[in-house]
């Protein structure tokens, strides 16, 4: 399990860096959704399935939808 944890955490850091550095805001939001999904799996690995369910529903679902709605109201490129 340590190998899986290391893999997940390294992809998590990569996703965080990519979400900050991307110029395309829609792409950044989608990378952020992937970050949230990985974070949910990591919560499950850490032994808190309650937080994992909430993270998967809120972080990957609702936050992404709200951010995409904001992007559709404003501009896609910064």
């Amino acid at each position: 399990m340590a190998v899986l944890d290391l893999l997940l955490l390294s992809i998590l850091v990569l996703c965080a860096l990519a979400a900050v550095r991307t110029r395309d805001l829609l792409g950044a939001v989608i990378i952020y959704a992937a970050y949230s999904l990985l974070m949910a799996i990591i919560w499950l690995q850490l032994g808190s399935p309650d937080v994992a369910i909430t993270e998967a529903a809120l972080g990957a679902g609702v936050t992404t939808i709200l951010m995409i709605a904001t992007i559709s109201k404003t501009g896609r490129y910064e």
């Binding site: 309650d50 369910i53 909430t54 529903a57 809120l58 679902g61 939808i65």
Partner: peptide, 21 residues
Amino acid sequence: SPGGGFAGGTIVAASMVLYAL
């Protein structure tokens, strides 16, 4: 089991937002 009012409410809300989308 894991879950509860907050997590389940968010899932129900996601279905309604999916309809509106």
